[in-house]
């Protein structure tokens, strides 16, 4: 890792840990949880779609499956309360990710818009299952999860905040590792041209499935934390297309295929959305404001924030080098 990369990572972790200690108002920590949730979703979406070029619109189906899996585990296996459910999360994530593989294997036989549509249908299938599998999900009545009493009233949000922060860091670490590994090169080559990648001996289906598994693993865990935080889930809230659209927009805003882009997108959009919701919520005008923020940034920085800044830095350096060269020539 470069010195700058270490500094960036260290600053993010320090700021993330310090935030609820410095600002302990419940509403602020709540916005923090929401921001980190979207950041984790956006990073994991980017892990698959940003690196492979396959745009999935079904991520929230696995968010919902993670939420319901944790809820059902509570109800049927009595995993206790307090911190215990957090320890079950990796199992929930892994189970949902493994269960998604056959579907992914079929979906990945399609490409481009067809793949996007196929994955979009997953969202509605999972939502319908949540409505209709009454014995497991209680349908539209929703599923209650026990409220953790051990966290106390004053700092109730903090464990959830740190759990989400942990998931963002996990997703970032996975992406960082991928970008520096052979797997990263394989995924980027698939994104550029799948046939060329196949010609170089890359097992493209297997490679895409690895990325798929990892993105579902993180997404399902995020869904699990969200469900435990809310303590009540129902089909419309846990398989909400707007959650997925938000995560995708944040990734594009920050910079698809970059490490920090999705986090930056979430840090810009979620607080902006919440601010406008608080001030303009009654009139629904906040949605217009939310769209306006996105449009302004895309007009000014069309490739996303991180790539646009990076391009700007490269251009400035080149200009300086050219000027320096011209000055030397003049001397």
């Amino acid at each position: 890792m470069t010195r700058n990369g270490l500094l960036r990572g260290g600053a993010f972790v320090a700021a993330g840990i310090a935030f609820p200690l410095l600002f302990n108002a419940a509403w602020l920590v709540n916005i923090g949880i929401l921001t980190l949730m979207y950041a984790a979703l956006a990073v994991s979406w980017n892990l698959f779609s940003g690196f492979t070029g396959y745009i999935t619109l079904g991520q929230v189906a696995f968010f919902g499956l993670g939420a319901y899996s944790l809820g059902i585990t509570f109800e049927h296996f009595g995993i206790g309360s307090g911190y215990n459910p957090f320890y079950v999360l990796p199992i929930v994530g892994a189970c949902v990710a493994f269960a998604s593989l056959p579907v992914a294997w079929i979906a990945l036989r399609t490409r481009a818009m067809t793949f996007a549509i196929v994955t979009l249908t997953l969202l509605f299938i999972v939502q319908q299952l949540a409505f209709n599998l009454h014995s497991l999900t209680h349908g539209s009545s929703g599923l209650m999860l026990p409220t953790p009493t051990t966290f106390g009233v004053d700092n109730y949000d903090r464990p959830f905040y740190y759990a989400m922060l942990g998931l963002v860091l996990l997703a970032l670490l996975i992406c960082w590792g991928i970008l520096r590994s052979k797997l990263g090169l394989m995924l980027l080559s698939i994104r550029e041209d799948e046939e060329k990648a196949r010609g170089l001996g890359i097992r493209v289906t297997g490679t895409k499935l690895v990325a798929w598994w990892l993105h579902v693993f993180v997404t399902a865990m995020v869904g699990g934390v969200w469900a435990y935080y809310l303590t009540f889930i129902y089909p419309e809230s846990s398989v909400d297309p707007l959650v997925m659209i938000g995560a995708v927009l944040m990734t594009f805003l920050g910079g698809r295929g970059t490490l920090w882009g999705p986090v930056v997108g979430a840090l810009v959009l979620v607080p902006a959305q919440q601010y406008m919701l608080i001030h303009l919520g009654g009139s629904q005008l906040y949605l217009v404001g939310y769209a306006a923020v996105f449009m302004v940034v895309l007009l000014v920085l069309p490739r996303g924030i991180i790539p646009s800044i990076r391009d700007g830095v490269v251009r400035t350096r080149e200009r300086q080098r050219t000027r320096g060269g011209a000055a030397k020539a003049a001397v």
Binding site: L188, S189, E192, K196
Partner: peptide, 12 residues
Amino acid sequence: FPLMTVWDNLLM
């Protein structure tokens, strides 16, 4: 792969 560096292409 046009968006990858010459070196990364070589490693591929």
